[in-house]
Each structure stands twice: as C-alpha cells, then as structure tokens.
Amino acid sequence: MEVEGIADLPLHTGHVPPYLIPIMRRLSSGIIRIMIDEWGPSKVVERLSNPLWFQGLNNVIGMDWDSSGSTTVTLGILKEVVGHEYGLAILGGKGKSSLRIPEEIDSLNFDVDKEKLKEVSKLVAKVDTTAIQDGYQLYHQSLIVSDEGKWGIIQQGMNEETKFARRYHWVNQASTTSVHDVAGLKSNSSVNVVMDEAQGARRVVLDLIRQDPRKVIREIEEAESMLKGRSNIMFWVNGGTESFVSPQAKLVYMKPIDIKKIGEVISKLNEFSPASFDEALLQGLGPSTAKALYLVADLIYREPPSYSDVANIPYDPFKYAFAVGGKDGVPYPVNRRVAYEVIRTLENMIERSKLDRKDKKIAFRRLKESIGRT
C-alpha cells in the first residue's frame, strides 16, 4: 500500500444549505454511475484515492473548494448515493462512524478478504498518527472498496493550533509503503519514518522494542539529556565538537517525555516481540512512545527519521470550483440552473446506457433463438 497524497484545508464553520444537498446527491450519483459503467468500480476507487481528483469532484458538486468539510460532506454524500449495488462501497465516516468500519466490512456482500481490510483500516490510521506525526489528530476515516478487492482510504485530521485540517489518501497500488508528491502546506515540526531515507530509523525502533525495556528507558533518558544540551562521555571522546541535535529535531521533541507511561508501553510491546514495524504499530506502538524511540534512533544510534513534511503544493485544483460555483459563494454562488442542466445531462446519459445494454441483451437473445431454429 502507498500514500497517494495529502491535502491541507482550513476549518470552515456552517452547514450545507438545504437546497444544495439534493444537487450534490444527484451530481455525485450521476458522475460515479457513469464512471462505474465506463471503467468499473475499481477505477473509481483509484480516482477517489487521488487528493486532487477528489478535490475536483468536491468542487464540481458545489462544495467549497478549500473547506475541511469537503472531506466529510462529500464522502457522506457519496456513501448515501453509492450503496453496495454497483460493486462499490464507502464505509466509515466522521467521528464514531469511523469506528464502525469493522462491522460495516462484515456486512459487505463482496467476495473480498474482510479480515485483511480490517487490518488495513487500522494500520493506515496508525501510520498517519504514529509513523507520520505532523500535528494533526485524526477524526475521520472512510474506506472505499470495490467488489474486486481494490481499496482506498481517505482520512482527515485536525490541527487545533493552526485551525487547519489535513486529508490523507491511501490506495493499494504497491507492495511497499512509499510517499508520492502530495498537496498540502509545509510544517517545520514534522517527523515521519515512512520515507525511504528513514529505513534505518524503523529498523532501530524495532530493535529497541525487542531489547530489555529497562535498557531502552535508560537510552531514552540519555537522549532526552542530549536534547537539553547536556553532553556525555562520547562528546568529549570526539573532541567536544560533535553536534548532537539538529534544529528540526529540537522543534519535534519540544514536549517533555512521560518516561513511566512510555516504559509501560515498551514493556507490553516487548512481550509481543513484533516481527515488523507494521506489526509493532498494530500491537500498540503509539505516537508518544514512537517519538521517544525516534529520538533514541537519531541521537544515540545516528539513524534519524525524516524531518521533512510529506506535503507540498504541486497543483491548485481551484479551477474546478468554476463548474457550478461554491457553497460559500467562491468563486461565485452555486448556479442552480447550470447545476440542474448538468444533472439532467448525466441522468439522461445513464438512462441511455441502460437502454443500450437492454437492447444488446434483446439482440443477443434473438440471435440465440434464431441460431437454435436453424
């Protein structure tokens, strides 16, 4: 699986006006139905997993081009209109709805590996809170899955200080975890170990979990002392010139470390003896403990995590906001006449497609009957 992209969005207040909800339902239903007819449900999963395509869809159906609600509202609308009958399902949602993903997976009538989907849902949430720590707390997760087993995950976190939300997109296109170019605003205090350059840090963290927890706690305390500018014997062995802490690390590890709590977590993980970093995440490695171990990997073992935020801004999808307008009047209020013209066009295309398929079935049946008479 791989990170397909990230988008940063300002928090907006207010609600979708009642007149706009049916427009959004019919527009999104028409677009998704045509895509399924043309390309199949798995291609729709792939498209929704792309942050820029998703943002474009959100704009086309009339939602704000830059709102945090573009995630929750658009996915909520899609979940309503898609159902399971087209070989596509959207599970989960905002807040408590995200916790119902496992039971919604069980209710799927698709021939897919349901236990694997449950594991993927949990693992992706852990990666975006623990392996990537960028100041955003997750409050939304949607799992999109096709009847062929293709899955994508869209989840969103909130940063209370900046008042921005960040949307994360995942898709099962690769056998290893990697990061693509993504859309978002850079942060100066991020840490992550999903980058290729952080393989050494992941390896060290796994090794630390398997060691005697008391030794690991001592190394965390030693690293914390180094973070505060206190030297140890190796500093003087190296001539008193060794630079211990990078400016990025100082920003990331500013908060004090709760040694007692972290020690309890490490002891439990040590009992499991995870075979991989992913397994450690699934067995309880959380953000605080992971960050303490990243600090040890950096300052003591010289295997730093990446301090580069996974977000950049390669493309601005604002132009799609000109399709029918936006909820908050940017770039202009939703043009209902244009929106309903588009809806009628889409729905007519769907009806013609149904008739074409029906005509084909009739033609094949008549051909079969005529062959049987000869």
Rank of each mutant, 00 (worst) to 15 (best):
V237K: 11
E224Q: 02
A223Q: 03
S243R: 10
E222K: 06
F235I: 06
S225D: 11
G239N: 12
L227V: 00
S231E: 11
F244L: 11
E242Q: 03
G229T: 02
P247G: 10
E222M: 12
I233D: 12
N238D: 14
V245A: 01
A223M: 06
L227Y: 00
W236G: 13
S243Y: 08
Y253L: 01
E242L: 06
S243N: 14
K250M: 13
W236N: 10
I233G: 10
I220W: 00
G229M: 06
S243M: 12
I233Y: 11
K228F: 08
I220V: 05
K250G: 07
N232Y: 09
V237D: 10
R230Y: 06
S243P: 15
L251R: 12
N238A: 14
L227D: 00
M226R: 04
N238K: 07
I233P: 09
F244A: 05
Y253N: 01
I220N: 01
S231F: 05
E221A: 11
N232A: 08
Y253D: 01
P247K: 07
S243F: 13
M234F: 13
M234K: 15
E224V: 01
Q248F: 03
K228Q: 13
S231I: 10
M234D: 13
E224C: 01
L251Q: 07
R230C: 05
E221Q: 04
P247H: 12
K250D: 14
M234H: 14
A249V: 03
Q248H: 05
L227G: 00
V237G: 09
K228I: 04
V252P: 02
E224W: 02
S243A: 08
N238F: 07
G239H: 15
F244W: 12
M234G: 10
A223V: 02
M226P: 09
